[in-house]
Nucleic acid binder design. Sequence first.
DNA 1: AAATATTGTTACCGGGTGGTTACAAATATA
DNA 2: TATATTTGTAACCACCCGGTAACAATATTT
Lengths: 190, 190
Amino acid sequence: MKKDRPATEKKIYDAFLSILKVKGPQGVGINAIAKEAGVSKELIYRYFGGLKGLLLQYAQKGDFFKSLLVLDDKEKSSVEDLKQFAKEGTKELRENKLTQEILRWQLLENNKETKDLFKYTNSQIGKIFAISDKDTSLNHAFQLMIGGYVYFTLLSKFNKTFITTDLTKEETWVKFDKALEKTIDLFNEK
Amino acid sequence: MKKDRPATEKKIYDAFLSILKVKGPQGVGINAIAKEAGVSKELIYRYFGGLKGLLLQYAQKGDFFKSLLVLDDKEKSSVEDLKQFAKEGTKELRENKLTQEILRWQLLENNKETKDLFKYTNSQIGKIFAISDKDTSLNHAFQLMIGGYVYFTLLSKFNKTFITTDLTKEETWVKFDKALEKTIDLFNEK
DNA sequence: AAATATTGTTACCGGGTGGTTACAAATATA
DNA sequence: TATATTTGTAACCACCCGGTAACAATATTT
């Protein structure tokens, strides 16, 4: 057996990401990660300080919401910015499994282990909503619809449909996008 | 020890509901239920056919979404109906912990054990969305916003805020309600 | 080359899980 | 009253979990 700590650390970290992506928060555990990495779990404690440390490092690296930060430099909010974000943001959300599982995680628990992780992710999301005006009906409607988008995205992992709405069809998500866009327009015409 | 099968069955069933309400889907297990009921777990297998049977019975009793079915008899959808449901439905959702945990459950898994349970709950929700016209932007916007409402409700169990939005304040939910109502209005004025 | 430090594995611990078996106690039946 | 059935408990099983201690193998330093 060769000795290569950096490579081993990467194997562990990658295994963690892989499990989170595939199995979700429920699958994330010391034993599962060690097995996936093909490494003794003792090393996870030694190199990362256990699962807690692994999460912390993950949070600080911030391997999520990457493409959602395109609007980061914008100072003011315009209707077009809002519409652009809605379109790009929802697309990114549907494609980034890792981000989805972190959002799912937030619906399950919020303890001292995950606290830091969620703190970082929320700071990322916060940048997004900073571009729309505060405390208006549009803002609240926008938040609700984005929330709904998240909800349906998470739901689509285990459910093919929401009632009669087919969550597997790309067409459905296009319609959601259009509804979102139209709502923004209606609020602005007023 | 007295022998009273009906009483024992009720203790088991109530324990199941209590655990689901307090601990959520993650807390539901044979041992936990037996302990909460103060009864040997063997009886759960004997009387209900294990956890699976317990879930099935729960699904068929349908102790959820009760107050959401006030619109059950309505045949056609009117704007006022939609607004009324939005208001009453979201209120019910926020108050019914049991319903919340079933919705949370759907975000975690959908296997043969929970399949029947979700089938029944979804048929209940289906009645709600049947009152709004299919395949319009309003319908999709409405779905998104209700989805967002569910999302924020589930989120509020572990998170006090969504970014800057305080999920503990009643005021916040009032604003969400107003945003929902206003959106319906805007779509209808058009 | 010898001693030391680092990397990695194995085996174990206490505790919890779902599930079953064996047995005791209470009730119903003969 | 004696026998059989139902109700209930306790102990056990194999298997998982997170966590740790003991030990082997490889690098590094002296």
